[in-house]
Structure formats: C-alpha cells, structure tokens
Design a protein around this nucleic acid. Structure first.
Lengths: 366, 366
DNA sequence: CGCCTTGATGTAAGCGCTTCCATGAGAGAG
DNA sequence: CTCTCTCATGGAAGCGCTTACATCAAGGCG
C-alpha cells in the first residue's frame, strides 16, 4: 500500500477515460443539468471503472466549504479503569454525539470529533486549531468559559450545546431546565403534597446548576412550599460532594426535608447512599429526584425518579442549526429550547420499590 | 456572520503584514530551521494579530495529507427512547471512539466520525464517500462483511477493529478472545471445580462469537470438563435470544450445567433472568459469566463476573497503527492483540451477593 | 439563407498552501 | 580585495477541484 492514497485517480483521469474535459466531469459529479445523457453515462462509467472518489480537500478548497462540522466535548482523564459513578455521565455526551453524527450525515456533512480540556491540554488552542478543518463548530457546555466564546464565535459559525441560553455571542441549543424543575416541583408539591423541600446544587459557576436551582425554588415557593437554604445543600456535581453535603446537614441537626431534588443523578445517588447509611428510608421518609436519567438509575432501589433529556435530539438539532448558519440560513431563534420529560419511578414514592434482578423497564423482548 | 469564514485571513495577509513572502510564513508555521529569529518573530506577531489559522483543506491538498482519520461504527436505530438492555452496548463503541479520539489528537490528527448501516443507508456508499475526506479509515467489526473490506483496503490505509484477526486484507486490532475464554474456563473448572458447563453463543456469523465458543470448549475439555452442545445454547447476542435458548433448554428437560459462560453480557442478563424466574439460584446452583463488562452488570444481583476489554486502548491503538500506515510506517504486526481481564464478582460464586443500593465498586470518594 | 438564440462542452483561473529552485548577501578563504 | 560557499529568503509551480467565461453547433426566425 502506498503512503496515503498516492496514485488515487483524479478528475483528470476520469476525464481522459471518458473523453471529455474535467469541467464536464465535475458537472456530472455535481448533478448539473444541461448535460447530454450519453455524456453523463460515459462519465459515470469512467468513474465506476476507476473507482474515483473526489478529493475532499480539493473540493473544500475550491468551494470554500469543507462539508465538515466539528463537535468539542470536555475530555476526561484517559484512564481505562474509570469505574466510578462518573463513568455513567459519559453516556450523556456520547449520546449527544451520536445524535449529531446522525444529523450531520443526513445533511451531507461529516462530524469531526474533538475533546478539549482534561488531558488534552489547553482547550482554546485545540479549538482554535480545529477552526481550519471545519466549517462550523459545536461546543458542549463547559468546554470553554463564556467570555472565551465570543471572539471565537465571531470567526466561525458556532452553536453552544446545553449552555445557559444567556450567551449573546452564539446560538444556543439546550434543554428547558426551568420547565423541567417546575415539573419536578409540581410533582413533589402538588402531586405528593410535600411542603418542606431541599435542592442539591452543582458547582456554583455552572449555569445549568443555577438555572435549575432558581427555577425549583421559584416553583416550589409559588406552589406554597419552602426550600431549605441552598448553601447548606450546595455540592459540586459529584456523588461524593453531594454525600458530604447531606451528611453535614444531618449531623448539624438540620431538619429532614420531605423531598430532595438534585441537579444531576450522580448527586442523587450520593444523597441516597448517605440516607441509606443513616437509616432514613427512601421514599417513605424522604423523596429523592435526580436529573439526566442516566441508565444506571433505573437499577437502583428504589429506582430514581429523574428528568430525561432528549440527548440525541439535542445533538441533531445543534448540527441542523449549525449547518444552517454555515450555509447562510439564519436560525429560527438564537436560543433553541427542547423539552424534557420527567421519568417517574420509585424514589419519589410513586411506585413500589424494586429489588429484582431487572427492573420492569427492561424489555427482554422474549 | 458571513457564510462560512469568508474573509478569513490567509497566508498572504500574514505575509503582507510581516513584510515577508508567503514561503517564509509557511516555513515558520511549519517550524523549519534556517530562519532568522527576528523574521520568525515578525511572522508570529502577524499571525497573532490576524488570528490566522491555516486552512486545512489547502494544506491537505498541497501536502496530500489531510491529517484526518475516519472511524466507522455500526449505526443504531435513531429512536430517542431506546431504553432496553441493548443501550448499554453503545458504551462499548463509544468508549472505543473516545480512545481513538485521544490517540488521534495526540498524534496531531483529527477523528472523523461516521456511522454506517442501521438507518444510515448503504454502508458501502457511506464508507466510499468518506474515503475522499480522510487519510485512513478504522472500521469497527461488523460494519462491513469481510469480503467487502479487501477492495477498500487496497485503496486506502485501513485498520479493522475487533475483527476476527483472520482477515488478510487489512491490519486488525482486537482483543484476545481466545485467552479470555481460556481464563473463564480456567476459573470455572480449575478455580471452582465445575465440570459440566455450557456456552451461550451470539450469531453464528460473527467471528467474535465463534472464536469465543471454540476457545471455551477447547479449554474446558483440556481441563477435564465437558460443554453441553453449543447448538442447544445458541443465541443471537441479545438478552431476549439468550433467554429463549435458556428456557427451551430447561423446558426440554436439559440437565442444568454447573456454569454458563456467555459470549456477551446482554445474553448473560437474559440467562439470569430466566434462571431467576425458574427459581434456579445463581451462583449457588449455577454460575454465570459474561463478556464485555458493561457498566450495568456491576449492579445486578449477584453482580456479574465478566471479561473486561480495554476498549479505550483498543481505539487508541487502532489510531496509532493507522497513522503509522498513513505515514508509511509498517505495523509491528498485521494482527495486534490486546489482553483482557477477568472481572470476578458474585455470579460465579466468588463473592457474596449484593443487594445494597450501591455495589462496592462504586467509589463515592467521600 | 443568414442571424440570433440556446444548449452542451471546453478553457483557464483561482481557492490557500507547501516546496523546489533561484537569488542575493555575507563570511571565510586565498 | 575578489571568489566561493552558506544561509536566509523570494518566486513560482502545482496539489485536485469548481466555475465564470468562451466557444461551437444546431435550430428558429424573418
């Protein structure tokens, strides 16, 4: 095998073989009209015989359009035995990526995958370099602080995925955090009749966390409930952090709320872990609700009630909007919001606990 | 924003600004020696001021090297509510992809992601089109039948991931299925002293399945055990299929083996499901072992003993080899084999069952 | 029956970059 | 002080493709 397709047939070879000019070949390749059927056929034959595939680089150069969009997610440490709870998070971005890939290929684009941050070095350098290889860029939340986004967005079409929606510098595609937490609040307060609630937040710097917190507090209050001080239940997105916060609250004699909503599932798991250790029964004594609906939460006992995000949709939509931007079509909105869905299970008190091998959501298709 | 980076600075702009020729700019950009320090500095300044990023397409065209490799995995139905066991499989290819991405970015390459098959139409067309955009291709097992691989591999550097290793047309990177099953056999026969075993296979057409089956049978036999007829326990990679096979065996009065090894985890889950339904205790009456070590199996009760594959490694290695191929370095071997590791848990009888909220492998880092 | 129109095809420029070759300016040697 | 030789730099070709423009043949019209 020659180093890198040396000797691959070019459009000239096809033209020679078909006895036409390269312009004609290009025309049939691009589906132009105004071509005699016989000519088109001869060209197609030559293409087939030579197994000609147009060189994407040349095409990109001459059209100023590479038909490639990039997606950047936050890198994770490159250990192979990452067996902690946090591994489950990956599924979230992976499934966004799958959605994006599907969307891209449907539009005739390819998806360039890049992680940034983590072990991959300076995210800004990485992203900047990418810029030359793609027509547009999708940034997952948290790969770049918001103020770094603006200058980049000026130079290349860009959409932010799962950002706050408050960024003015780029189009955002995200999930309706506020509505989701309103749902949770409604279910807990109106549905179950709980009044005294708590909210476990992620890092204070994260827009996702603050939005969820604010919306939860607002909704609960409006419905006549109260939320314990957010600071007391502040954590950092990890199960460990949430466990620590929960333990401190209990040990300091804090009153047990009737329901605890968490900004993500990992933290809900941490909370349940500590509660179980302290002999507090879920959901009998306190209800727990998560966010993200990562797969594993269906297998906890009780199974965790959680907010499901349309992650593939998120990815597909982001690509659609981005390609629109690239091709000069303005987006319908600068802030595109997708709906979530509350997955009700046992941890809020809605269903019996599950201790079996498999939960009922597993369809074995037997 | 202009449609697609129109007006982005080019190497000419940089040259003008720095008062040098484009050749010189190109040299400093590519780290050539033989440049006066002052010149280099002026160029770098201009690059910085203009925020110049070289156009990848132009570069690719002129060097005949795009610095992009593609990875093709098998597409899945694009439903967003794919809540079945099979969802967990995704984690396997996703984590290969992550490994590949890491490997690529370390080598200065980018990763082009593509699914083929499934809802994405004719895989061969997809892959063929990709050919023009990349310098080399990684194919995950099962995206293309082996005989279709050869002609493609002739035209572009290619590595097969998780293939049989018997393909002569392309370099293969895979896991040591044979050794893995030998480990399982050894553990069951020599470790636990079982003699009467069974093996649940995947689709007969899959090299992964046949290799695992053969190796298991050979090892068990050599160690003095016996394996029930493979045909009786033949399934199709899915939990439903395995459940069906198990049920049939039991209902037809087949003797319960002392241990059941499965070609993947989904099938192990299906088997355990049926056993539980039939009142057969695992691991007391029969041991069950899986393959892949997907995350969820740690949360079954009993937790499933399974073979862990170094999936990130697999991806990273594939990229390394591929880039070597692209750059003209022949691979160390045409068939690269990575080791697996047997994760011992409760389902083979090694540890107490786990009914708690969390299994002990979950490190909360509290 | 010649002129203008229309449709099919060829010609050539140019996309932004790398790189071979040429050029010119010092610098050391004679 | 002139002659090579070296090193830094510029000139220009060419990578494979698209596309504006030129060309040419055929047909409709007066």
């Amino acid at each position: 095998m020659e180093p890198s397709g040396a000797g691959a047939p070019t459009i000239y070879d096809v033209a020679d073989r078909a006895g036409v000019s390269i312009a004609t070949v290009s025309r049939v390749l691009n589906g132009h009209t105004n071509l005699r059927a016989a000519t088109r056929q001869r060209v197609m034959d030559a293409v087939g015989e030579l197994k000609f595939v147009p060189n994407g680089a040349a095409r990109g150069l001459s059209q100023g359009l590479k038909k490639v969009v990039g997606i950047v997610f936050d890198g994770v440490p490159a250990t192979d035995d990452l067996l902690s709870v946090e591994e489950e998070t990956l599924l979230f971005s992976d499934s966004i990526v799958r959605g994006a890939e599907a969307g891209a290929s449907q539009l005739g684009y390819s998806l360039l995958l890049n992680s940034a941050g983590g072990s991959s070095g300076d995210p800004e350098r990485t992203i900047n370099g990418l810029t030359g290889k793609v027509d547009g860029l999708i940034l997952l939340d948290r790969v770049l602080p918001e103020r770094r986004v603006a200058p980049l967005a000026k130079r290349i079409p860009m959409v932010l995925l799962a950002g706050s929606g408050r960024t003015r510098s780029a189009v955002t595609v995200r999930v309706d955090n506020a509505a989701a937490m309103a749902d949770v609040a409604a279910h807990l307060v109106s549905g179950h009749g709980f009044r005294r609630l708590a909210f476990v937040s992620g890092l204070a710097a994260s827009p996702d966390s603050t939005t969820r917190a604010q919306s939860f507090v607002a909704s609960v209050t409006e419905l006549g409930g109260t939320v314990q001080p957010l600071e007391a239940w502040a954590a950092d997105w990890t199960s460990g952090g949430a466990a620590r916060a929960t333990r401190q609250w209990l040990e300091s004699g804090g009153e047990l709320p009737e329901g605890i909503a968490c900004a993500n599932d990992q933290m809900a798991i941490g909370v349940m872990h500590v509660l179980a250790g302290a002999g507090v029964k879920v959901p009998e004594e306190v209800a727990v609700v998560g966010f993200d609906d990562i797969p594993v939460v269906r297998h906890l006992s009780p199974a965790l009630t959680s907010v499901r995000q349309p992650s593939r949709q998120l990815g597909a939509t982001a690509v659609e909007v981005l390609v629109g931007l690239v091709e000069g079509r303005p987006p319908a909105s600068r802030d595109i919001v997708l709906p979530t869905q509350l997955q009700i299970r046992g941890s809020c008190g809605c269903r019996a606990e599950h201790h079996g091998l498999l939960s009922e959501t597993w369809d074995l298709g037997v």
